[in-house]
């Protein structure tokens, strides 16, 4: 099968990044939307790892929300973005390890449902421990310093946009290496012929657990960036529809390559902004129709469309 090679993908990624910077420069308000989109792209990259193993998590917003709350609670103590971000992501990864040890036994619908249930329990706790979390009112996050510098609003927004973009490039590159490695290949085997995998002496559970922890880490990065960008965290970040949104974006972007999640996330946020601007009270209808259209007519997602175009280009 002729797929775009590594070099081509890297070039596309860099061109995309440059385009994003240009857009952010031209329309300052879009910088915020794009930062959120890139953050979500990171979380969706984690979803993609699990999708490779044929598993769909309907609860990954749990890790996004967890990391966001870590940032909210720690920001007054350590007001430094470059410390908060890794702390929150590692926290999410640790939580992912604990939960992963237990959910990696489950497959398919049960895997999805276990994740859904745990995320809903976490969501309820955020609301229940009202005196600690402020319930649905949420917690305000004061802008932390970045690399020791207290920035102006514009500088801070640029810094976070830069961090998000940088993280996406690195994470995408690492994910590509991981998926090509034996550990990554084992994921596809879980999807198709799990038992054979174990005959070969590879523990399917360990392979899935590794991907799960990585996905929790990525979702944690996303949550930390979202918290520092919107600067207000609420339990809604962890509601099941937020988890569904991540899966939605994964399919929209296409699960075939690591660029898919970012493509999907940016398209998703832009469609939502457009839909909200044109029909404020029917944006769900528009978003739903777009998703339906993609699944029915381009089931390999936006990446699939680009891939086809590239192939045609090469043949021509």
């Amino acid at each position: 099968m002729s797929r775009p090679g590594g070099k081509q993908e890297a070039l596309l990624a860099l061109a995309g990044a440059a385009a994003l910077v240009a857009i952010a420069f031209g329309a300052p308000w879009l910088k915020f939307v794009l930062t959120i989109a890139l953050a979500k792209g990171l979380a969706v990259l984690g979803i993609l790892l699990l999708l490779r193993a044929g598993q769909v998590s309907f609860g990954h917003a749990l890790y996004v929300a967890f990391a966001a709350y870590v940032v909210a609670f720690l920001a007054p103590l350590v007001p430094e973005a470059l410390v908060l971000l890794p702390l929150a992501a590692l926290g999410a990864a640790l939580l992912g390890l604990v939960i992963g040890l237990f959910v990696s036994r489950y497959r398919e619908i049960f895997f999805g449902m276990m994740n859904l249930a745990l995320s809903m329990v976490f969501y309820s706790l955020l609301e229940k421990f009202y005196h600690f979390t402020r319930g649905t009112d949420g917690i305000r996050v004061q802008p932390p310093r970045v690399a020791g510098m207290a920035l102006t609003r514009d500088g801070y927004e640029w810094a976070l946009f830069g961090i998000a973009l940088g993280l996406c490039l690195v994470a995408g590159w690492l994910a590509r290496i991981y998926l090509a490695s034996p550990m990554g290949q084992a994921l596809s085997a879980i999807k198709t012929r799990e038992t054979r995998l174990e005959f070969m002496g590879i523990s399917a559970r360990a392979a899935l657990l590794f991907a799960y922890v990585a996905s929790a880490f990525l979702a944690g990065c996303a949550g930390a960036i979202i918290a520092m960008t919107t600067r207000h965290v609420t339990p809604l970040l962890g509601y099941w529809t937020a988890s569904g949104e991540l899966v939605f974006i994964a399919v929209l972007g296409g699960a075939g390559a690591v660029l898919g999640p970012f493509l999907g996330a940016i398209a998703f946020e832009l469609v939502r902004v457009y839909a909200a601007a044109t029909l404020a009270d029917s944006w769900q209808l528009i978003l739903g129709s777009v998703l339906l259209g993609v699944i029915l007519f381009a089931s390999r997602g936006l990446w699939g469309v680009i891939e086809a175009l590239l192939r045609r280009g090469r043949r021509a």
Partner: peptide, 13 residues
């Protein structure tokens, strides 16, 4: 309705 990350973005827009 869609949540704060969306609302704060819309506010900026």
């Amino acid at each position: 309705g869609p949540g704060l990350d969306h609302l704060v973005g819309e506010f900026r827009r």
